[in-house]
Design a protein around this nucleic acid. Structure first.
Lengths: 110, 110
DNA sequence: CATATCCACAACCAGCTGGTTTCACAACCA
DNA sequence: TGGTTGTGAAACCAGCTGGTTGTGGATATG
Protein backbone atom coordinates (compact mmCIF):
# COMPACT_ATOMS: atom_id res chain seq x y z
CA UNK A 1 0.00 0.00 0.00
CA UNK A 2 3.06 2.20 -0.41
CA UNK A 3 1.91 5.51 -1.91
CA UNK A 4 -0.52 4.03 -4.38
CA UNK A 5 -2.79 6.16 -6.56
CA UNK A 6 -6.40 6.73 -5.52
CA UNK A 7 -7.88 4.54 -8.24
CA UNK A 8 -5.78 1.54 -7.28
CA UNK A 9 -6.80 1.99 -3.65
CA UNK A 10 -10.48 2.07 -4.60
CA UNK A 11 -10.35 -0.93 -6.90
CA UNK A 12 -8.30 -3.05 -4.53
CA UNK A 13 -10.68 -2.14 -1.70
CA UNK A 14 -13.56 -3.31 -3.88
CA UNK A 15 -11.73 -6.53 -4.76
CA UNK A 16 -12.68 -8.24 -1.49
CA UNK A 17 -16.15 -9.79 -1.09
CA UNK A 18 -16.23 -9.02 2.66
CA UNK A 19 -15.55 -5.36 1.98
CA UNK A 20 -18.16 -5.23 -0.77
CA UNK A 21 -20.66 -6.79 1.64
CA UNK A 22 -19.80 -4.11 4.17
CA UNK A 23 -20.43 -1.43 1.56
CA UNK A 24 -23.73 -3.06 0.62
CA UNK A 25 -24.71 -3.01 4.26
CA UNK A 26 -23.73 0.65 4.54
CA UNK A 27 -25.70 1.48 1.42
CA UNK A 28 -28.80 0.88 3.54
CA UNK A 29 -27.66 3.10 6.39
CA UNK A 30 -24.82 3.87 8.75
CA UNK A 31 -23.64 1.22 11.19
CA UNK A 32 -21.18 0.56 14.00
CA UNK A 33 -18.27 -1.84 13.81
CA UNK A 34 -20.07 -4.54 15.79
CA UNK A 35 -23.19 -4.24 13.66
CA UNK A 36 -21.04 -4.66 10.57
CA UNK A 37 -19.09 -7.56 12.05
CA UNK A 38 -22.16 -9.48 13.20
CA UNK A 39 -23.04 -11.29 9.91
CA UNK A 40 -19.45 -12.44 9.30
CA UNK A 41 -17.76 -15.48 10.71
CA UNK A 42 -14.66 -13.57 11.56
CA UNK A 43 -13.35 -11.58 14.47
CA UNK A 44 -14.28 -7.97 15.09
CA UNK A 45 -10.61 -7.09 14.65
CA UNK A 46 -10.60 -8.52 11.13
CA UNK A 47 -13.63 -6.39 10.23
CA UNK A 48 -11.90 -3.42 11.81
CA UNK A 49 -8.99 -4.00 9.44
CA UNK A 50 -11.35 -4.09 6.46
CA UNK A 51 -12.88 -0.82 7.62
CA UNK A 52 -9.41 0.67 7.78
CA UNK A 53 -8.83 -0.30 4.16
CA UNK A 54 -12.18 1.18 3.11
CA UNK A 55 -11.46 4.34 5.05
CA UNK A 56 -8.01 4.64 3.48
CA UNK A 57 -9.59 4.30 0.03
CA UNK A 58 -12.05 6.96 1.19
CA UNK A 59 -15.02 4.77 0.40
CA UNK A 60 -16.35 5.28 3.92
CA UNK A 61 -16.08 8.01 6.50
CA UNK A 62 -16.24 7.58 10.24
CA UNK A 63 -17.48 9.77 13.03
CA UNK A 64 -16.77 9.39 16.71
CA UNK A 65 -19.79 9.46 18.98
CA UNK A 66 -18.90 8.46 22.53
CA UNK A 67 -17.40 4.98 22.51
CA UNK A 68 -18.67 3.92 19.10
CA UNK A 69 -17.30 4.77 15.65
CA UNK A 70 -20.19 4.69 13.17
CA UNK A 71 -19.35 4.22 9.49
CA UNK A 72 -20.97 5.96 6.54
CA UNK A 73 -20.68 5.33 2.81
CA UNK A 74 -18.87 7.93 0.73
CA UNK A 75 -19.71 7.76 -2.96
CA UNK A 76 -17.24 10.26 -4.39
CA UNK A 77 -14.56 7.64 -5.04
CA UNK A 78 -17.13 5.23 -6.36
CA UNK A 79 -17.99 7.83 -8.97
CA UNK A 80 -14.31 8.13 -9.83
CA UNK A 81 -14.07 4.37 -10.32
CA UNK A 82 -17.16 4.30 -12.52
CA UNK A 83 -15.73 7.27 -14.40
CA UNK A 84 -12.51 5.46 -15.26
CA UNK A 85 -14.29 2.37 -16.52
CA UNK A 86 -16.92 4.25 -18.48
CA UNK A 87 -14.32 6.50 -20.08
CA UNK A 88 -12.23 3.68 -21.51
CA UNK A 89 -15.11 1.46 -22.23
CA UNK A 90 -16.53 4.21 -24.39
CA UNK A 91 -13.31 4.92 -26.23
CA UNK A 92 -13.09 1.28 -27.13
CA UNK A 93 -16.58 0.55 -28.25
CA UNK A 94 -18.03 3.93 -29.07
CA UNK A 95 -21.33 2.28 -28.31
CA UNK A 96 -22.60 4.74 -25.72
CA UNK A 97 -26.15 3.64 -26.37
CA UNK A 98 -25.40 0.11 -25.19
CA UNK A 99 -24.06 1.35 -21.86
CA UNK A 100 -27.10 3.57 -21.52
CA UNK A 101 -29.27 0.53 -22.06
CA UNK A 102 -27.29 -1.36 -19.49
CA UNK A 103 -27.70 1.35 -16.89
CA UNK A 104 -31.35 1.79 -17.72
CA UNK A 105 -31.90 -1.91 -17.21
CA UNK A 106 -30.17 -1.72 -13.86
CA UNK A 107 -32.34 1.17 -12.84
CA UNK A 108 -35.51 -0.67 -13.76
CA UNK A 109 -34.39 -3.69 -11.78
CA UNK A 110 -34.58 -1.64 -8.58
CA UNK B 1 -6.78 -16.56 -6.69
CA UNK B 2 -8.41 -19.71 -5.33
CA UNK B 3 -11.95 -19.91 -6.75
CA UNK B 4 -12.76 -16.25 -6.32
CA UNK B 5 -15.99 -14.74 -7.60
CA UNK B 6 -15.99 -12.88 -10.92
CA UNK B 7 -16.43 -9.44 -9.39
CA UNK B 8 -13.41 -9.83 -7.12
CA UNK B 9 -11.32 -10.97 -10.08
CA UNK B 10 -12.36 -7.94 -12.11
CA UNK B 11 -11.78 -5.41 -9.35
CA UNK B 12 -8.44 -6.86 -8.32
CA UNK B 13 -7.37 -6.91 -11.97
CA UNK B 14 -8.28 -3.22 -12.20
CA UNK B 15 -6.39 -2.45 -8.96
CA UNK B 16 -3.00 -2.38 -10.69
CA UNK B 17 -1.90 0.76 -12.61
CA UNK B 18 0.10 -1.29 -15.11
CA UNK B 19 -2.95 -3.37 -15.94
CA UNK B 20 -5.15 -0.30 -16.22
CA UNK B 21 -2.61 1.23 -18.60
CA UNK B 22 -2.72 -1.97 -20.67
CA UNK B 23 -6.51 -1.73 -20.84
CA UNK B 24 -6.28 1.93 -21.81
CA UNK B 25 -3.91 0.97 -24.60
CA UNK B 26 -6.26 -1.79 -25.75
CA UNK B 27 -9.20 0.63 -25.70
CA UNK B 28 -7.58 2.21 -28.73
CA UNK B 29 -7.10 -1.04 -30.59
CA UNK B 30 -5.76 -4.58 -30.35
CA UNK B 31 -2.07 -5.13 -29.70
CA UNK B 32 0.56 -7.81 -29.33
CA UNK B 33 2.41 -8.59 -26.12
CA UNK B 34 5.56 -6.79 -27.23
CA UNK B 35 3.60 -3.72 -28.29
CA UNK B 36 1.96 -3.66 -24.88
CA UNK B 37 5.25 -4.25 -23.06
CA UNK B 38 7.15 -1.54 -24.93
CA UNK B 39 6.12 1.51 -22.84
CA UNK B 40 6.86 -0.20 -19.52
CA UNK B 41 10.17 -0.49 -17.76
CA UNK B 42 9.64 -4.11 -16.97
CA UNK B 43 10.35 -7.44 -18.56
CA UNK B 44 8.16 -8.98 -21.24
CA UNK B 45 7.48 -11.82 -18.82
CA UNK B 46 6.06 -9.45 -16.22
CA UNK B 47 3.67 -7.98 -18.80
CA UNK B 48 2.78 -11.49 -19.84
CA UNK B 49 1.79 -12.20 -16.25
CA UNK B 50 -0.40 -9.11 -16.16
CA UNK B 51 -2.09 -10.23 -19.37
CA UNK B 52 -2.74 -13.58 -17.76
CA UNK B 53 -4.49 -11.84 -14.86
CA UNK B 54 -6.57 -9.73 -17.24
CA UNK B 55 -7.44 -12.78 -19.30
CA UNK B 56 -8.44 -14.71 -16.18
CA UNK B 57 -10.71 -11.83 -15.15
CA UNK B 58 -12.06 -11.98 -18.70
CA UNK B 59 -11.27 -8.34 -19.30
CA UNK B 60 -9.34 -9.25 -22.43
CA UNK B 61 -9.51 -12.03 -24.98
CA UNK B 62 -6.63 -13.39 -27.01
CA UNK B 63 -6.38 -14.91 -30.44
CA UNK B 64 -3.50 -16.88 -31.87
CA UNK B 65 -2.24 -15.80 -35.28
CA UNK B 66 1.01 -17.49 -36.17
CA UNK B 67 3.61 -16.82 -33.45
CA UNK B 68 1.89 -13.78 -32.03
CA UNK B 69 -0.97 -13.62 -29.49
CA UNK B 70 -2.88 -10.36 -30.06
CA UNK B 71 -5.00 -9.05 -27.18
CA UNK B 72 -8.43 -7.44 -27.40
CA UNK B 73 -10.52 -5.64 -24.81
CA UNK B 74 -13.67 -7.37 -23.59
CA UNK B 75 -16.15 -4.99 -21.99
CA UNK B 76 -18.72 -7.42 -20.62
CA UNK B 77 -17.06 -7.69 -17.21
CA UNK B 78 -16.45 -3.97 -17.14
CA UNK B 79 -20.19 -3.52 -17.42
CA UNK B 80 -20.68 -5.94 -14.55
CA UNK B 81 -18.28 -3.95 -12.40
CA UNK B 82 -20.02 -0.68 -13.23
CA UNK B 83 -23.31 -2.42 -12.53
CA UNK B 84 -22.31 -3.41 -9.02
CA UNK B 85 -21.10 0.06 -8.11
CA UNK B 86 -24.06 1.85 -9.64
CA UNK B 87 -26.54 -0.47 -7.98
CA UNK B 88 -25.30 0.14 -4.45
CA UNK B 89 -24.46 3.71 -5.00
CA UNK B 90 -28.06 4.26 -5.99
CA UNK B 91 -29.54 2.41 -3.04
CA UNK B 92 -27.51 4.57 -0.74
CA UNK B 93 -28.04 7.97 -2.17
CA UNK B 94 -31.20 7.63 -4.19
CA UNK B 95 -29.77 10.49 -6.16
CA UNK B 96 -29.93 8.89 -9.60
CA UNK B 97 -29.94 12.30 -11.19
CA UNK B 98 -26.51 13.09 -9.77
CA UNK B 99 -24.99 9.95 -11.29
CA UNK B 100 -26.68 10.79 -14.56
CA UNK B 101 -25.08 14.22 -14.42
CA UNK B 102 -21.74 12.65 -13.69
CA UNK B 103 -21.98 10.32 -16.66
CA UNK B 104 -23.27 13.09 -18.90
CA UNK B 105 -20.29 15.22 -17.93
CA UNK B 106 -17.96 12.36 -18.76
CA UNK B 107 -19.61 11.93 -22.10
CA UNK B 108 -19.23 15.58 -22.96
CA UNK B 109 -15.58 15.47 -22.01
CA UNK B 110 -14.93 13.06 -24.89
C1' DC C 1 19.72 -25.65 -42.15
C1' DA C 2 20.72 -21.75 -38.91
C1' DT C 3 19.11 -17.87 -36.79
C1' DA C 4 16.07 -14.46 -35.06
C1' DT C 5 11.46 -13.25 -33.15
C1' DC C 6 7.45 -13.71 -30.12
C1' DC C 7 5.93 -15.55 -26.27
C1' DA C 8 5.14 -18.44 -21.92
C1' DC C 9 6.63 -21.53 -18.18
C1' DA C 10 9.40 -22.41 -13.91
C1' DA C 11 11.89 -21.16 -9.94
C1' DC C 12 12.95 -17.77 -6.93
C1' DC C 13 12.35 -13.60 -3.91
C1' DA C 14 10.61 -9.56 -1.08
C1' DG C 15 6.66 -7.45 0.38
C1' DC C 16 1.70 -7.21 0.95
C1' DT C 17 -2.90 -9.36 2.53
C1' DG C 18 -6.19 -11.25 5.41
C1' DG C 19 -6.83 -13.70 9.05
C1' DT C 20 -5.72 -14.93 14.10
C1' DT C 21 -4.82 -14.05 19.30
C1' DT C 22 -3.66 -11.11 22.93
C1' DC C 23 -3.76 -6.86 25.11
C1' DA C 24 -5.02 -1.95 26.15
C1' DC C 25 -7.92 1.78 26.74
C1' DA C 26 -11.83 4.91 26.88
C1' DA C 27 -16.54 5.26 27.89
C1' DC C 28 -20.69 3.87 29.74
C1' DC C 29 -23.44 1.14 33.82
C1' DA C 30 -24.32 -0.41 38.60
C1' DT D 1 -15.59 2.19 42.56
C1' DG D 2 -15.33 -1.72 39.61
C1' DG D 3 -17.17 -4.39 35.68
C1' DT D 4 -18.82 -4.46 30.97
C1' DT D 5 -18.85 -2.78 26.24
C1' DG D 6 -16.92 -1.01 21.82
C1' DT D 7 -12.95 -0.50 19.48
C1' DG D 8 -8.08 -0.33 17.94
C1' DA D 9 -3.01 -1.75 18.06
C1' DA D 10 0.63 -5.28 17.99
C1' DA D 11 2.71 -9.52 16.94
C1' DC D 12 2.39 -13.40 14.34
C1' DC D 13 1.44 -16.51 10.34
C1' DA D 14 0.30 -18.68 5.70
C1' DG D 15 -0.56 -17.59 1.21
C1' DC D 16 -0.81 -14.39 -2.63
C1' DT D 17 1.40 -10.66 -5.69
C1' DG D 18 4.44 -8.63 -8.72
C1' DG D 19 8.68 -8.50 -10.06
C1' DT D 20 13.19 -10.99 -11.61
C1' DT D 21 16.25 -14.39 -14.42
C1' DG D 22 16.77 -18.42 -17.11
C1' DT D 23 15.07 -21.40 -20.47
C1' DG D 24 12.74 -23.29 -24.25
C1' DG D 25 9.14 -23.91 -27.93
C1' DA D 26 6.97 -22.43 -32.09
C1' DT D 27 7.11 -19.78 -36.00
C1' DA D 28 9.12 -16.87 -39.58
C1' DT D 29 13.44 -15.53 -42.35
C1' DG D 30 18.00 -15.83 -44.74
Amino acid sequence: MVAVDELSLVFSALADPTRRAILERLAHGDATVNQLAEPFEMSQQAVSKHLKVLEHARLISRSRTAQSRPCALDTVRLDAAVGWIVRHRQIWADRHDRLDEHLAALRKAE
